[in-house]
Computed example of a mutant assay.
Amino acid sequence: MEVPELDVPGVYRIETMALKEGMPLVLDMTRSVYPHDEIYGQYCTVTEFVDAPPDEVFEYLADTRSLCEWTYSMRGFERTEDPEIWVSDDRIGSHTRIYTRTVANAEAHTVDYHCAWDQADHLWMIYLMRVVDAQLVLNKPGSVVTWTNCHHPFYDDNGYPETEPQGRPVWVGDFWHLFAAGHLLELRNLKAICEHRHANRQPIKPEWMN
């Protein structure tokens, strides 16, 4: 199939830029040190290998209640009037309730947590997760889990200030610069839990969730 020419500014293809011209451009984009905001300012992605079967890791993540085990601060999950939404305490925010709806796709092994502090009408904090079969990408058994967050404007300016508890000293966006490290800590929690249960021949998704 012949690929048509593209007359689009800012698109670099071998048809319009030879390798000897493109290589210096790529090398110039490669640095030994990167500013934190350049890597994690608008999007925050963390990745970890988990020595446990991908189907079981996915099934565990797809249950909203798993968050009470592997996250640092979400505890005490209860169902709301909407059967798809759970409410819990986010203990990094004093007196903060966090609402969560989980959207999972078993075929693609994606698990998206739609969350918000204080209110359930607009779940704008979206945590995008994917479980990949490590046999495909690393040639060994296990799972590769990726987790991405996008810097929604409400992280900088609460879109629902009227729902905020009086006197709370922090807002979730105050921690954005720590999201990469904080989420990696939580992802390593997930790794430790899944690997421990798998190594000890226990179900990764515990019986109490069934």
Rank of each mutant, 00 (worst) to 15 (best):
M17F: 08
L19D: 09
K20F: 11
E21D: 15
G22C: 09
P24N: 04
V26N: 05
V26L: 15
P35T: 08
E38K: 09
I39H: 06
Y40C: 09
C44P: 04
T45C: 02
T45H: 03
T47N: 08
D51G: 09
P54W: 04
Y60P: 01
Y60W: 07
L61R: 04
T64A: 02
S66A: 13
L67F: 00
E69W: 08
T71C: 02
T71I: 05
Y72C: 08
Y72V: 07
S73D: 13
S73I: 01
R75A: 03
G76P: 10
R79P: 12
T80K: 07
E84K: 12
E84G: 05
V87T: 13
D89Q: 11
R91M: 09
I92L: 04
I92E: 12
G93N: 06
G93S: 13
G93P: 05
T96F: 08
R97P: 01
R97N: 02
R97A: 04
I98H: 03
Y99E: 12
T100A: 07
T100Y: 00
R101S: 01
A106V: 11
H109Q: 13
D112Q: 12
Y113G: 03
H114K: 03
W117I: 06
W117K: 06
Q119W: 03
Q119H: 15
Q119K: 03
H122T: 14
W124C: 05
I126R: 05
Y127L: 13
R130T: 10
D133F: 01
D133T: 07
L136N: 12
V137H: 01
S143I: 06
V144T: 01
V144I: 13
